[in-house]
Nucleic acid binder design. Sequence first.
RNA 1: GCCUCGAUAGCUCAGCCUGGUAGAGCGAACGCCUCGUAAGCGUUAGGCCGCGGGAUCGAAUCCCGCUCGAGGCUCCA
Length: 619
Amino acid sequence: MQCMRILQLHCDYIEFTPVKKEIKSAEEIDPQPKHLDEVVVAFVAVEEGDNFDVAKKAMNEISESMKKIGCNKLLLYPYAHLSSKLASPNTALSVLKEMEMQEKGLEIQRAPFGWTKSYKIQVKGHPLAEHSKTISAGEEKEFTSEALKAESKIQSFWHIMTPDGKMHDIDKFNFAKHQSLEVLTKYEAAKKRSVDEPPPHVKLMKKLAIADYEPASDAGNMRFFPNGRLIKSLIERYVTEKVVEYGGFEVETPIMYDSHHPSMESYFNRFPARQYNVNSEGKQLFLRFAACFGQFLMAKDFQMSYRNLPLRLYELTRYSFRREQSGELVGLRRLRAFTMPDCHAMCKDMKQAKEEFRKRFDLSRQVIKGLGLDEADFEMAIRFTEEFYNENKELVEELVSKMGKPVLVEMWKERFFYFVLKWEFNYVDNLGKASALSTDQIDVENGKRYNIEFIDETNKPQNPIILHNSPSGAVERVIYVLLEKAAKDQREGRKPGLPLWLAPTQVRVIPVKPEFFDYCEKLSDKISQHDIRADIDDRNESVGKSIRDAETDWIRYIIVIGEKEVNASKLSIRDRKTGTVKELTMDELIREIKEETQNMPFLKMNMSRYVSKRPQIMV
RNA sequence: GCCUCGAUAGCUCAGCCUGGUAGAGCGAACGCCUCGUAAGCGUUAGGCCGCGGGAUCGAAUCCCGCUCGAGGCUCCA
């Protein structure tokens, strides 16, 4: 159906200058620059079939929403680019004039029609500032942006579900034994999020030379030092291995897309103004905010039969970009450029989708565990439409029961998003901030929207149901969680550390005197041959100083080499985990490390083995 | 976008209120020490005190504007 498209922006100001006539029927006007302050700008595209009725309806809606935001100055700005099915210029102009004529107690101005205009605009930041509408002659239809979710009519009902499948009222549930679930519940349901200190992982990420802000880039684009790159690579490798084991096929898709490609249009209706834009050779490109469209556009070009399903496509996006508002960015928790493992499964029907959904739930739990987190470290939330729940109670209850502890439930009266069921694992950090790690969704909308088709048993084309899963969540966020967890250990008097398989240095060898350098080098060589990251503190420092430095770097095993060790088979090994010095042979040590890191990926040391050769990155 | 805070040596910061020679610790370079499980000692180098303006005999310090950054709020497909 054709309908008028309006993008409505509440602005501090707009300034525009008619540059030249775009079409013959352009209005005859004096091309003077114009400046308006405190104004609502409505970019309007008139489509085929729009009439005066639509004009009236549109003005009703606009004045309605302007009342809400308390602004009565309106600029109607003809804007053809919102539509690919434009009305003829004559019709469009008369519809626009009709809109201008509507008496709504507003101060209405109109930018000239048919001119190329240059303009400068400053849009306000409040939630109601951006708004897009489509208005048709028939029934009223309004796409509300995600930013307006709270304002929209969708209603959420919050509950707690216990592992036995029972639903509890959140006000009556006893949170005594489930404190972080309580935090998550308040965070989500009541939107209570007041904090007045920076999260502790920010200091740690610098101190451990993992990552830092890059002032020459945009906010939320971090730089990762060798240690951070190593940790990221290991996590990426681990997650990828697990997804491939599960049956995912790894692909790679472009990081930028044409904003005017038809497939992107509907996305922009729903989620405006949160992406980075890049202009190149007259094209308006945007940087991807997820791997979804890349994989959907790819799957659309596959010839698929129901026999091929489920088909699992996987990509580790480095990067996905989301231009979050500057004030929302926090250390490694929330970034504008982040690495996201993203796995979609195309399923032939709901039965298969549910089966697949279970597998991925298990996969995600396994991945999270491998990353060093257990059930006590995160809280699950599950969200669904009422209809889906009534038809699939057994699936929801099964997942909650597997989780083995109470879970936050959000239920919607109607489907608003593209999915009918979604769960996520949320980490609740030291300041009571919740952020999502793993997640999976059952998407019943995008198969059709992207025209992805498979041929079913009866030789008919069908759109698949698509699952969206990130088994770990953003890789940077995983690091944030590990550091926050370490900070918690530190605060509660335990020694902080990283999982051994992620430690940039696993074993440090320290000579008592320089004359033992050679011996240390040979020892570290031998240990390294077993895929263990071992280095040598070859600086001419006191033993005390070297040990202190190794401790503050969270190095798990410290071997001090002196007279005694050179002449004996046992090594004296300081184990950070126990805080004691123990005597082990090299083989025993190697065995212990291999056991603790088994089945986890390995990468060689990403820095000089010689501490004296390393630049000082952070103090 | 709004609010708060910040910007001084490579890093972390003091000095600012009450204007008058630019400070410390860490790190770096050099030297001494040759060391047994969390900091050995000394010397040296290193500064457009974010940018622009104002009042003042005189500004890192007071006033105004700007830029950049961080955190919080809103938000997070």
